[in-house]
Design a protein around this nucleic acid. Structure first.
Lengths: 210, 210
DNA sequence: TAACATTCTGACCTTTTGGTTAACTAAAAA
DNA sequence: TTTTTAGTTAACCAAAAGGTCAGAATGTTA
């Protein structure tokens, strides 16, 4: 029972190195895909020798799992929570604002997630089947309740959720295309508000809330 | 000048084999990514020996290019053409209907395209910079014209185009997630109409056209 | 049928990759 | 100081990958 270590210094190096590796790996996985990202390229990007990367994560699979987990945590935190007492207008406003913000602040998480789903959601099937499905059902019920109460137009709540997800995530996932089309090098501060404003405006009115 | 061949039989075998290879390749590229899709796996899926695949396409790069080209052709054909004389209501209806139909009928093309963009659009930068940018500008001007004429609400036309693209393509790209959440095995005929109906309804009303 | 072109294919080669190992250093505990 | 533990790294290896090639098989045409 040599349960000593980790007063502070201990886990520090570990945590730092792991984080550096995860960030590098996320980039590489996006740019090259799972198979295309090599342990060497991840190591190079992280500024570490390959063997050191394998020391912290026993295998490439493990690195990928860790990246995905980080992504799901982000999703979980960033998703604005819809609350019953908000009413439909505020709920949708909060929901859209949260998702747009996440898209602009953590586009890479969104990209990794999108690639996983496109490729068949092999690693996320369970997450979708349990967590996501439940989340959608709960929120859909809430919307349905407001609809039944005449507080908003009768639109399919599930489709509405998909609409908000897709239209907000688009700015993260399709960043390259959007910037090219608009002939811009990067997103800027005000884009977040502009997009939030636009989507909120259209969707609220679309739901008969404006 | 032995310009004989191809009265009919000639190019036939060639065309058939190539098409079989392209379909197999598209699947593999989606499922495994560019690097993950091996020439062997493409050959296996196409039911041909590897060397035969390399006989028709000199390299894996070439196969990928051919797949992308096919995808852009599809995009080009499938995009409902907005015409000035339609007016905003019909234009948006046609646009949404065309994109939804494409998403449900050719989800794989949409997926390949999406992956390319997410990964930085390396092979599509030129397409986006020239063709797409021009397309968006032309259509945006049209919408702006209608807005100036008071025929629709004052919404940002470029954002509107992005909204329609994203919300429709979502059903192709995120197929796996949507089906899992809805606890279904496959899309069905009526889904196309239902989704078209939903999106048209919300977006038209969002644009003050209902 | 003979000549020619096209299609097909197993065997082979080179390079790259994920992962292991063993040895070394640094630092913290005993 | 001695002993452990954590971290670091070059060198190595087996497997898998992309691609070549020579020659066999199968048409096509004259």
């Amino acid at each position: 029972m040599t349960e000593s270590k980790q007063p502070n210094k201990q886990g520090k190096i570990r945590a730092q190195s792991q984080q550096k590796i995860l960030e590098a790996a996320q980039q590489e996985f996006i740019l090259q895909g799972y198979k295309g990202a090599t342990v060497q390229s991840i190591a190079d990007r992280a500024g570490l020798p390959k063997a050191n990367v394998l020391y912290y994560f026993k295998s490439k699979e493990n690195i990928y799992h860790a990246v995905l987990e980080q992504t799901l945590d982000m999703w979980d935190q960033g998703i604005g929570d819809i609350e019953p007492e908000d009413g439909p207008k505020v709920a949708i406003e909060k929901f859209i604002a949260a998702k747009v913000k996440m898209s602009f602040m953590h586009p890479d998480s969104s990209k990794i997630y999108a690639m996983e789903i496109i490729q068949g959601a092999q690693h996320l099937k369970e997450f979708a089947r349990t967590y996501l499905r439940q989340w959608v059902r709960t929120k859909a019920k809430l919307f349905q309740h407001w609809i039944d109460n005449g507080e908003m137009k009768d639109v399919n709540p599930v489709n509405l959720i998909f609409l908000i997800w897709s239209s907000t995530q688009h700015y993260a996932d399709f960043e390259a295309q959007i910037l090219t089309i608009m002939n811009r090098a990067d997103y800027e501060e005000e884009d977040v508000d502009q997009v939030t404003q636009f989507l909120t405006d259209i969707i609220l009115r679309g739901c008969g809330l404006k």
